[in-house]
């Protein structure tokens, strides 16, 4: 459904494969006076789909916000597309962000198209008005994420899954090269989650996107991502998904045992836990 509709993000715009798109270097972050992230270091190469996992409160959202420049690290730094420092203005375009689920006001007075256009404002100049090419880009992205027929509906009237796709289109419509997703599949049913991941894989291939996604669904993420990173305050493990889910480090991070062979996660007896 995206054939021919992908404009602007052509081969010339892609970072060469193998270059580092996100470089996290010894990052330490304090939130409200408490140390949340300690000495986080990893690279995300161009074109890779990286899953970021860890238990609740591990600092995943904080890490994404630090990558996006919303939070200043206390120590260490972030490199995006090989450069560090403030990424305001033009360069901010190439990063798309879908935040952790936020309830959209049912009565928010804007259509899906208007909301997706928000993601393109950075391309319009200081007092820019959207031109026909901008609307085309917006419509193409709505087509790509599969909600072209909903473009004239108000954003608050969409279902949760449809809103997720609208937010994805918003994140994609500014010649995006890096996509940062915080629990994008939460609230989606299983087929919808599967579709969402296939869409991400397709975008990754078609647009040469680099993707960093947080999810609590380790099983699904392990099946889709090229690499997994597990954090809990500090780095626990970074590697290919198979190795990571079977590692001792991930059990440590979650302080429990996973049984991935069964295709689902189960708390083992003996961890001092109750129930059965």
């Amino acid at each position: 459904m995206s054939d021919g509709s992908i404009i602007e993000t052509d081969a010339a715009n892609r970072p060469a494969p193998g270059t580092t798109v996100v470089g996290v270097r010894n990052v330490c972050v304090d939130v409200a006076g408490r140390s949340v992230l300690r000495d986080i270091t990893f690279d995300v190469p161009a074109g890779q789909f990286v899953g970021l996992v860890g238990p609740n409160g591990a600092g995943k959202t904080t890490l994404l916000k630090t990558i996006l420049g919303l939070i200043e690290p206390k120590f260490g730094h972030i490199e995006l597309f090989g450069s560090s420092g403030p990424r305001r203005g033009r360069e901010a375009h190439s990063v798309g962000y879908v935040p952790q689920r936020h309830a959209i006001d049912r009565n928010f007075p804007a259509t899906v198209r208007d909301v997706v256009m928000m993601g393109r404002l950075c391309c319009l100049g200081p007092i820019g008005r959207p031109r026909r090419a901008d609307w085309k880009q917006v419509d193409d992205m709505l087509d790509t994420v599969g909600i072209a027929d909903l473009r004239a509906r108000n954003i608050g009237q969409l279902s949760g899954g449809e809103q997720r796709r609208a937010m994805l289109a918003q994140a994609l419509c500014a010649s995006t090269r890096l996509l940062v997703l915080d629990e994008p599949t939460i609230g989606l049913d299983l087929p919808a989650e599967h579709d969402f991941y296939s869409l991400l894989r397709q975008l990754q291939a078609d647009l040469g996107l680099t993707i960093v996604a947080v999810s609590h669904d380790l099983v699904a993420l392990a099946g889709e991502a090229d690499a997994l990173i597990c954090i809990n305050g500090h780095m626990h493990i970074h590697g290919n998904p198979d190795d990571v889910v079977h590692s001792h480090a991930i059990r440590e991070a979650y302080s429990c045992e996973f049984n991935f062979l069964a295709g689902e996660l189960a708390l083992h007896e003996g961890g001092g836990d109750h129930d059965h």
């Binding site: 916000k65 962000y97 935040p99 936020h102 909301v115 928000m118 404002l121 950075c122 918003q170």
Partner: peptide, 15 residues
Amino acid sequence: LFIAFDEEVARAYGR
């Protein structure tokens, strides 16, 4: 309107 919709994303996009 963007800020009213999602202030944090607007910030992330350098608005």
